[in-house]
Nucleic acid binder design. Structure first.
Lengths: 345, 345
DNA sequence: CGATATTCAGTAAAAGATTTCGTAACTTGC
DNA sequence: GCAAGTTACGAAATCTTTTACTGAATATCG
């Protein structure tokens, strides 16, 4: 039969006694090939079950229609929502997604980036590991002509393309909500202080309190390293204060979950003794008997979609413009507002 | 400088005034190249920041060190746990993962498979869409020499490689537990009847009841299409029975979540009026105030890891053996026992 | 009718690495 | 000192597809 081999364009050419270039052009509907020939080629291709060898095309065209997506973790709801949307959108644009998870390890992140560079991906979407401090690879990728779009965890540098979430709007809404429910003792469990995301949250927290003329109580801001233990300790710090807060905003839903467990262990009741609002809007809240009072939605899917859209734009410019195109060096940013949603109570 | 181009072995050869074959061999530590030459080549390669063009190698070697993973959904906890582990393991074996989600749409699944075939992946791990009935693509992939390993949702065919979860052990343990707690009115919310996974669960359910000499009440087996509405309706059927069950085993945790919500809406109390056990062990249970009594863990990460291991074996055999190797046609299966864990109460 | 377009298809190079085959130069063994 | 073996490297083919260039045949026009 076909000797277990995939048919090639050469095979078609031989059978039809025409040249491979004609076959290639016919299959790509090139106008310089006559209708009859084109039909003959396509017919035989169909019969032989011909499929182009994409590895050859990738090689020749220096384009792989592949994008790399690197995330800290695939099992975190925020990221799996994002990757899900990215894959979906990439797929409908005939792009393929290759995947890497850094597990928040900068070394591993770097290794993945190099692998993807080796695979000659057309672009990379990257939510960097929490403790990545070295971003030299950005220059390397730029040198290699591979555009990068950051999202969620974005390095604090100019000249990077990114989708950033404006965490402030959500924080303001959250505090408005708490205040309008009569809360004045509002605390904040923040993440690691060095993260831009933590800084932004904290600024917004301070601002929002000021807006309501609530004086800032330093004890009401505590920090967690985002581990389960860290989360528990952070909330315990708050609970052990002489006047404990009645409302807590926390870094994200995972922190809130651990915090709530700790609260219950202390014999207190969520949504009675103490109320929560946190970032991320974990899809599970609707199933909880005592969910947080509300959530600050960050739209992971939308962020992913925007990131991919921006990446496509960069890839196009990359193809159109020369190597000296500045589109890669100039960083563009799109800001997505966070929003208070799911008034669960 | 380097004209914005990536250096190639040709460039190295030219500068060193040796042939490209020597460079290639030197870089691959081929024994027929002298130590001095090898060192010189490696040194220059380092200086020039040479990186092999993998698209060229993939093309030449007919091997991409890439595997495809196709899952129904990336945002479901079970699958994100699996992909996370697969990516992890693939990464440490210097393989790259390309990703596709079928969204339980057979057409989309097929398209993804073809794309991956085009990418010349070395193998595919596939958890097929729930309502895929046509598995012709298996033959096509086999013809193309691409091994496939199924897991979780496995077609009911011989000659397929798969990691299957033995759902029975878990069911037996679950019912043992219920009975030992005094329950005799045990119901079962099953998934769509056509799924092998549903059939297996139901068989085990019937067997386990028989083991305890509990006569089977047909009304105590209801079905859901796994939609939120379907899940609610299913549990309502049970609750509206003249003698409602005191214990319920459900198809999976998502069903249980919806069922619990419905139970509460009816004014009943979970873990008091009615108890649940379900498959999957959703990681969120530890945060719930009224979690199911226990969970039947299916070890998604482990299943993924085993699938990848099996795939690697098949890829190796594929390389070693000829095209006529039967290893691809003979289906091998590994069974992983499900297990009752997290006695949450 | 001859000059010029237009149409259609072939030739060959190119992309970057690996690999088969071949061959100089040098070392052994006797 | 010569056959045989070893060492170290080069030339060229190869993997598949695309594409710039070229050329032949046919059509069009003045």
């Amino acid at each position: 039969m076909n000797k277990g081999k995939q048919p090639t364009i050469k095979e078609i050419a031989k059978r039809l006694k025409i040249s491979t270039s004609t076959v290639s052009r016919a299959l790509n509907d090139h106008p310089s090939i006559g209708l009859v020939t084109t039909m003959r080629v396509k017919k035989l291709a169909e019969e032989l079950n011909y499929e182009p060898n994409r590895t050859a095309i990738f090689f020749k065209q220096r384009k792989t229609f592949t994008i790399g997506v690197i995330l800290p973790s695939l099992s975190e709801a925020f990221f799996s929502a994002a990757i899900s949307e990215i894959e979906n959108l990439a797929n409908s644009n005939n792009y393929t997604v290759i995947l890497g998870q850094s597990l928040d390890d900068p070394e591993r992140e770097l290794r993945i980036i190099n692998t993807m560079k080796g695979h000659r991906v057309d672009g990379i979407i990257l939510s960097s590991a929490k403790n990545t401090r070295e971003f030299d690879y950005i220059a390397v990728l730029q040198q290699a002509g591979i555009p990068v779009v950051f999202f969620d965890c974005v390095p604090d540098l100019v000249h990077t393309n990114a989708i950033v979430s404006n965490l402030k709007t959500g924080m303001h809404e959250a505090i408005d909500t708490f205040v309008s429910c009569g809360h004045h003792a509002i605390a904040f469990i923040n993440g690691p202080a060095h993260l831009p995301a933590s800084k932004e949250r904290e600024e917004a927290f301070v601002e929002a309190l000021a807006n309501h003329n609530i004086s800032l109580n330093k004890d009401y801001i505590v920090y967690t390293d985002l581990s389960e233990k860290g989360n528990e300790q952070a909330v315990l710090e708050l609970l052990n204060l002489s006047t404990r807060p009645s409302a807590v905003i926390s870094f994200n839903d995972y922190v809130t979950l651990d915090a709530m467990n700790a609260v219950r262990k202390k014999g207190l009741t969520v949504n009675q003794d103490i109320f929560f609002i946190s970032y991320a809007n974990y899809p599970i809240w609707k199933y909880m008997e005592n969910p947080p009072m509300a959530s600050i939605e960050q739209f992971p899917g939308k962020q992913g979609a925007l990131a991919l859209q921006m990446l496509f734009d960069l890839i196009d410019k990359n193809v159109a413009g020369g190597t000296e195109d500045t589109s890669l060096t100039d960083g563009q940013r799109i800001v997505l507002e966070s929003k208070l949603v799911n008034q669960h109570l």
